[in-house]
Nucleic acid binder design. Structure first.
Lengths: 217, 217
DNA sequence: TCAAAAGTGTTCCACTTACACCCATGT
DNA sequence: ACATGGGTGTAAGTGGAACACTTTTGA
């Protein structure tokens, strides 16, 4: 969508995060034009006429991933990310959580997207590492008092899947019994009667989130 | 590096809060032109060429109050506050905490400023009540884990003054002993050897904040 | 001596943390 | 029968909430 042309006065960037293979990963786009050609950047674009910021973020997320109705929240607004932007330009950043297997990446030869582990980032354009740092901090704290993880898991999931998701984001192991107790006490989860048979071991009970829209405790 | 064209559609608003007489109050400006003429609004203005958002908020705060070097933090960015703004306009909001007795209000016949208790607001322009609600929520939570109150108190203050400040913001009484214990355990405060003699009762010990710049726990 | 605000400790409860073994299933 | 991941309880420690009296001063 947005190769060249002068940068808009108000850009919307969306940090799109997922968890795969025990890693927190972010969707980045490789710039195929100066400045910072070849470097990777957070996807974004200009605000369209008559569009709200939330709508622009929703649209951008859908363009890149095909995904809708997920956790998407405003992060921070920067005025000094892009040294080449016209004076007065601002970047309103959002962050989104998506299920890796629900994503259909945009297919483009230029501006190709790719997933990167947040612990092994490529060379980034502008000052995008500041945005990513902020997103990680906010996500970690959101996990503690919201149901944000609903957006990273299928409708039904096991307690182990949930715990692994948390561990991947926080970057450390959690105690199984304590995790279980806390998360069940929070009332964010609902126990189902179903189980997942998955190999030569005891089947795991399935849970779901009480709400699949954002809830704060 | 393009020259400056038309001004960008980015406004910066600053919610300026203080505590006086046991009340949390906000500085508002009375509009003397349409739209919403006569209604009160959060002070703000356009971003100036080559100015960062933080700089614009700092400048706006100084213009209205003469105050610098206080708690000032970005709050949220809205695209749908002002129904009359051009499409694509956004409002980046900040909130600031000032000492009431350090303020020198701008003197103007038009667009006169005034303080209002947040519990007794006048008719507001645009959707400014959304911004004020958000500021209150954020302030209340910031009090719990930062030294934000440094910006509302003189350099030296008594434990009672500090507690009254907290109570005014939270809108409820706190237990004296628990408050003392918590706030001293936080390491945000330093005990001085001085006392304040203030009438026919026991003099109060004076405290100061360990840092008069923002600190998170 | 009295009025006024400053200052001080303890108990209870809820929540967090650390920690190790048995259970149900498939091969 | 055994390997694999699922599932469970308890004790110790920590932090918050409730609660009332003594101290110091000035008038």
């Amino acid at each position: 969508m947005p190769p060249d042309g002068p940068p808009p006065d108000v850009a919307v960037l969306v940090v799109i995060l997922t968890v795969v293979e025990g890693e927190l990963r972010v969707l980045l786009i490789q710039r195929s034009a100066p400045p910072d050609e070849g470097a990777w950047a957070i996807p974004g674009g200009a605000l369209i006429t008559n569009e709200s910021l939330d709508a622009a973020a929703t649209r951008k997320l859908a363009e890149e991933t095909g995904v809708r109705d997920v956790f998407l929240e405003q992060l921070y607004t920067f005025s000094d990310l892009d040294d080449f932007a016209p004076a007065g330009a601002v970047a309103v950043t959002y962050f989104a959580l998506v299920r890796h297997d629900g994503v259909r990446l945009a297919e483009r030869s230029a501006w190709a997207p790719g997933w990167f582990a947040v612990n092994a980032l490529p060379v980034l354009a502008f000052h995008n590492e500041r945005v990513l740092d902020l997103a990680r901090v906010r996500l970690t704290s959101k996990l503690e008092y919201t149901n944000a993880a609903y957006s990273l898991l299928p409708e039904f999931f096991t307690m182990s899947q949930l715990q692994e998701t948390y561990e991947s984001i926080m970057g450390r192991k959690l105690d199984k019994r304590n995790f279980r107790r806390r998360v069940l006490a929070s009332d964010l989860l609902v126990v189902t009667q179903q189980t997942a048979k998955a190999g030569r071991h005891r089947p795991a009970r399935l849970y779901r989130f009480a709400s699949r829209t954002p809830v704060e405790l």
